[in-house]
């Protein structure tokens, strides 16, 4: 169980291997990787965040996911700083005995992370990326 907020890239395979290493009880290991899409404003963006609150918000989301599903482990990594199109930006790993819990928990974490964790994307051209109403609406299904 852990949350990392970092400038550095991460290794998806290494993170997955670390989660399952030495265990025989995990039946499902779900991995979601978010990538920077190329946008109209240019081939890169800068991600600003609120140090302190970011870690707290991600920790709260992880705790909520663990309260709702039978998770054996969970890991969230989110990057900040300058990121080029194609770069990895976020990783969510969830492990459970059966796949449904791991799938659902990973979706839940991503839905809440999108509109509850204090990150803001700025395009290379200087404009801030607008929040999408569909991201806020996505939270309704978890009520």
């Amino acid at each position: 169980m852990s949350v990392s907020v970092q400038e550095d890239d991460f290794d998806v395979g290494a993170e997955m291997a670390a989660m399952s290493a030495g265990r025989q009880d995990i039946g499902a290991l779900v991995s979601f990787t978010g990538l920077v899409r190329e946008m109209a404003g240019g081939p890169e963006l800068v991600l600003e965040h609120y140090p302190g609150m970011t870690e707290k918000a991600l920790g709260d989301i992880e705790r909520e996911a663990r309260a709702r599903w039978d998770l054996q482990d969970c890991r969230i990594i989110h990057r900040y700083g300058p990121l080029a199109a194609g770069a990895r930006i976020v990783l969510v790993l969830t492990a459970s005995p059966h796949r449904q819990a791991a799938f659902e928990a990973a979706e839940f974490i991503m839905d809440f992370l999108k509109s509850r964790a204090p990150f803001w994307k700025k395009e290379a051209g200087g404009s801030w990326v607008d929040a999408r109403e569909s991201d806020e609406a996505a939270l309704d299904r978890w009520k």
């Binding site: 991600l47 609150m53 992370l113 999108k114 803001w120 994307k121």
Partner: peptide, 10 residues
Amino acid sequence: VAFFPPMTGG
């Protein structure tokens, strides 16, 4: 107290 626009992470 912190003020900011709607969040756009992920």
